[in-house]
Design a protein around this nucleic acid. Structure first.
Lengths: 334, 334
DNA sequence: CCGGCCATTGACATCGTTGTCATCGTGGTT
DNA sequence: AACCACGATGACAACGATGTCAATGGCCGG
């Protein structure tokens, strides 16, 4: 099929070892020989067999990226950045998704480890991170899942949410709903804490009926609908994820309610084109990925300093939906 | 590091060849021996070294997916489906993006071929497909780029667009703008042809000023703005891609025009939540990917029938934006 | 003129696996 | 009783690369 090092050696009339030397930098080879070998390589369009190399060296020219879902815009952005960065280093990338399944997440990690990837970029689900052997370069992204042994790049979920909910309170809202996935996700737990803290800071009591959990846009829409149907419905909704935000928006639209404020954690395509345009807390996924790849390449290069936990700043993007004042006067709580 | 076949052989007190036989189906091995080996495999958590296997066999347990952009929702859906299908077969997937660069596309393909992927799922750009050696399993998706030698899964761009523009005409529009990427993309050329055919079928002359080319949402917005600023502006816009649709929508919004109809080729997230909700021609990306993976696995399994060119049906999803009637009476053309 | 050093090069083993072929023992056949 | 067929197993080479170590030859210093 394709040319091997033996073919090149024959063509250049040298030994395979000399060819090997030239390919790997050409140290200790006479300039003339180097040129001969280079010409033979070009003439035969020789490319070293990666399998043989990897078998010998125990490493491969790949990195693995593991995310919740390959179809999610946040993950897609991360993969896109990872690919660009990896290509610049001559690495190819494997991708895998975990779904909401810690066992599957762990087995995806294990498979990539067996493939001897140079490094792993992982959006961890559950305790799958324990499947990463110590010594393997890995960076956690978006979530840490309680693991301190690997570098991580996350956002300040609690503080960002506290500030976001504070933003709603500052516009006069006193009944703020919280809509998000079930608190199985570490990020969601942080966001709920932030929500509670914002209310507490304003001297308010949390009404547990205003906290709704639902995964996926259709479920979120139903859950949001139930919030709106409460006796004392919220005048503003904090959506913990874009998916929840989409559900909340759809529910408000379906109920014909244009008077409810909405703030979404995580920017999403089209958010600026909706009516009203959606105010969001931007997580800067590309920034996440860049920072994570920086760390990953550093680890691959041998950096063995203690794990670094980077927190990338969020940014409130004011577009209108969260700046709607509560209808009428604020009601008092029961 | 991890256990090898030698370790298993020692543990089970048999030769490595016997272990190999058991791993690969266990034909011609005494049942007792099979059990012994299986136990040793389990005890040592042995997994065959893929590099050694691939070196020996010249094939790997991977498939490659190559798309324009990893961040695009259409591509992301395809990758997501490909991963699910590949995982079911025990294959891992490499991803790569081409950008709008035929050379890069070709080199991505060449890299994956050198990695001996079992098969390739390619959204081709330019004539990169010629980088696929004959005999390599490959399926083209979304575009054929003029290649008949590989299976393909596409939509009927010309007919779908013709019908879509016909839909606008049926609502009384006589000046319909066409906004899309430059006709470098084969799909775009087909869509322009469909546009022209729809107008011709209605006995209308094509006004070339109504055809605008722009790549990316910001450029599309500018181009759409120019369309709206014409002396005789269009009363409806056909956007050849979601990105163009987004630009057109933004331009209409910016110009305060709620009287212009909009039809977009390709469904996109949030389309149903915009005001008005956007009528689209759905390409069914998941259906594309499923059909393409069916073909790919068939080819991998050895199917060597002539190339199959599948056309997945599109579906007009009526949501409102394309059903806006032209303001006032139709003007006559100059 | 000889010994030794250095630059250059090559022979060979090795990574972990599978294909080829040989070997071994057993039971049935003549 | 000798032979053969066959099921089960193992020794060994090969896949294509790189690390180890030795060999070669020229040049310099003594």
């Amino acid at each position: 099929m394709s040319a091997t090092i033996h073919d090149v050696a024959r063509e250049a009339d040298v030994s395979i070892k000399t060819v090997s030397r030239v390919i790997n930098g050409g140290q200790g080879v006479a300039p003339v020989t180097v040129r001969l070998v280079r010409e033979a390589v070009a003439a035969l369009d020789y490319h070293p067999n990666q399998f043989a190399r990897s078998l010998r060296s125990g490493a491969s020219d790949t990195i693995g990226v593991i995310v919740d879902s390959l179809a999610d815009p946040f993950s897609a952005t991360i993969i896109s950045v990872a690919e660009r960065r990896a290509m610049a280093e001559g690495l190819d990338i494997f991708v895998a998704s975990t779904g909401a399944d810690a066992t599957r997440a762990a087995s995806q990690i294990a498979r990539f480890v067996r493939r001897r990837v140079r490094g792993l970029l992982v959006m961890p689900y559950g305790d799958c991170v324990s499947a990463v052997p110590a010594g393997t370069a890995a960076v956690l992204i978006d979530r840490r899942s309680g693991f301190d042994t690997f570098d991580s790049v996350t956002v300040a979920n609690e503080a960002s949410t506290r500030d976001g909910v504070g933003h709603l309170l500052a516009h006069g809202h006193r009944r703020v709903g919280f809509l998000g996935p079930a608190p199985g996700f570490q990020t969601v737990r942080g966001r709920i804490r932030g929500y509670r803290r914002a209310l507490a800071a304003a001297g308010m009591v949390v009404d547990e009926r205003l906290i709704a959990a639902a995964w996926g846009a259709p479920a979120a829409e139903l859950a949001a609908g139930r919030l709106l149907a409460l006796d004392e419905p919220p005048t503003a909704i904090f959506a913990a994820t874009p998916m929840a935000g989409q559900g909340a928006f759809a529910a408000m639209r379906a109920a014909g309610r244009t008077d409810i404020a909405l703030l979404v954690f995580g920017d999403f395509p089209m958010a600026d084109l909706l009516t009203p345009a959606i105010t969001v807390i931007d997580q800067d996924p590309a920034g996440h990925a860049e920072a994570a790849m920086d760390r990953l390449f550093a680890r691959i290069a041998g950096d063995d300093s203690p794990p670094l936990h980077q927190v990338v700043p969020t940014r409130l993007i004011v577009r209108g939906s969260a700046e709607i004042a509560p209808a009428g006067r604020a009601r008092s709580r029961a």
